[in-house]
C-alpha cells in the first residue's frame, strides 16, 4: 500500500500515531500508520509505556516535500516517540523549500515523550518546520527539538522552526527560530547564535509545575531553564555541536527532578 502522493513539487507524506490506555495500566496503539518516507514502528516499551520509532525510509525532506506527523496520547496513554536517525534536510529540484509539520495532542491523564534525533540543515536546503502542541490541563509532556546547522564543516541551509504549545486552550509558548542564508539579519550575531552550530529546546509540562515551578536559571554555559506562564518549562540551549548540545539538554532535564 503506497499512498505517497508525488506532486510536481515533491513528496507529500504523513504518519499518524494514536495511543490510549488499555484500562489495565498498559498502553495500546489503535492507530500506527506511516507512508513512504515516514515509516513508524512499535518497539519494545517499558512498563506502562508504549514506544514508537519514526524510521526514515527515504532521504529528505527535500525541497518541495511536505511531511506531516501527528501523535495523539489519549487518556491513560504513556507514549514515547523517537526516531531511528537524524532528519537531514537536503536541497531539492524544487526551489519552494520543504515543509515538516508535527502535530502533538495529549489528553488529561496521558503522557507523551517526543524525543526525535537531531534535525540537520544541510547546505543549500530550505526547510520550514512547525511543531504545534495541544495539551489538556492534566497532560504531561516532554518534548525535545535539536537543530544542527550544517553537516560537519558545512554552511547551513535555510531553516525556520516554529514551536507552539497550548495548555487548556491557552498559548504558553510561541517561538520561531530562523537561521541560515537568507534568514533575517543578525541570526548568527551576538544576539542570535554567535557562531554556535547547534541549538535546542526542551519543553517539559507537568501539572505539578502549576504550584511548584522550577526556578529560572542558567544551566552551565549555553542553556537556560525558563519557567513559562503555565505549568511548563522551556529549556533553551546553544552549543558548538550536536554532541555538546545533547549533553546540555540532558543535564538541564535531569536538574528539574
Amino acid at each position: 500500500m503506497d499512498r505517497v502522493t508525488t506532486t510536481a513539487g515533491g513528496v507529500r507524506a504523513s504518519a499518524r500515531v494514536l495511543a490510549r490506555g488499555d484500562g489495565r495500566g498498559g498502553t495500546v496503539l489503535p492507530v500506527l500508520e506511516g507512508e513512504g518516507p515516514l515509516a513508524v514502528r512499535r518497539t519494545r516499551g517499558s512498563g506502562a509505556e508504549a514506544r514508537v520509532m519514526l524510521v526514515g525510509a527515504m532521504s529528505g525532506p527535500l525541497g518541495g516535500d511536505h511531511f506531516t506527523v501527528a501523535a495523539h496520547a489519549a487518556a491513560g496513554a504513556r507514549l514515547r516517540v523517537g526516531s531511528a536517525a537524524a532528519t537531514l534536510a537536503l536541497p531539492g529540484q524544487d526551489k519552494t523549500g520543504a515543509r515538516y509539520d508535527v502535530r502533538i495532542t495529549v489528553d488529561d491523564d496521558a503522557e507523551l515523550s517526543w524525543l526525535p534525533e537531531q534535525l540537520i540543515s544541510a547546505g543549500g536546503s530550505d526547510l520550514h518546520v512547525t511543531t504545534s502542541v495541544e495539551l489538556a490541563a492534566g497532560a504531561r509532556l516532554l518534548l525535545r527539538e535539536e537543530q544542527v546547522l550544517g553537516r560537519a564543516g558545512e554552511e547551513p541551509g535555510r531553516l525556520t522552526s516554529r514551536l507552539t504549545v497550548r495548555i487548556d486552550g491557552r498559548c504558553v509558548l510561541d517561538q520561531e527560530l530562523a537561521c541560515g542564508p537568507g534568514a533575517p539579519g543578525g541570526w548568527d550575531g551576538p544576539a542570535g547564535l554567535a557562531g554556535h552550530r547547534a541549538v535546542g529546546q526542551l519543553v517539559v509540562v507537568r501539572p505539578a509545575f502549576a504550584t511548584g515551578p522550577p526556578a529560572a536559571r542558567v544551566f552551565e554555559e549555553g542553556a537556560a531553564v525558563l519557567p513559562l506562564v503555565g505549568p511548563a518549562v522551556l529549556v533553551t540551549a546553544v552549543a558548538p555541536d550536536a554532541l555538546r548540545l545533547r549533553r546540555l539538554l540532558d543535564g538541564a532535564l535531569a536538574s528539574l527532578d
Partner: peptide, 21 residues
C-alpha cells in the same frame, strides 16, 4: 493574535537570565 510573529533569539533569552543573577 496568533498571526503575530514569534521570532526568538536564543542568546538574548539565555543572556537575560545570566544577567538577572
Amino acid at each position: 493574535v496568533d498571526v503575530l510573529p514569534a521570532r526568538s533569539a536564543p542568546l538574548l533569552e539565555i543572556g537575560a537570565e545570566a544577567h538577572a543573577a
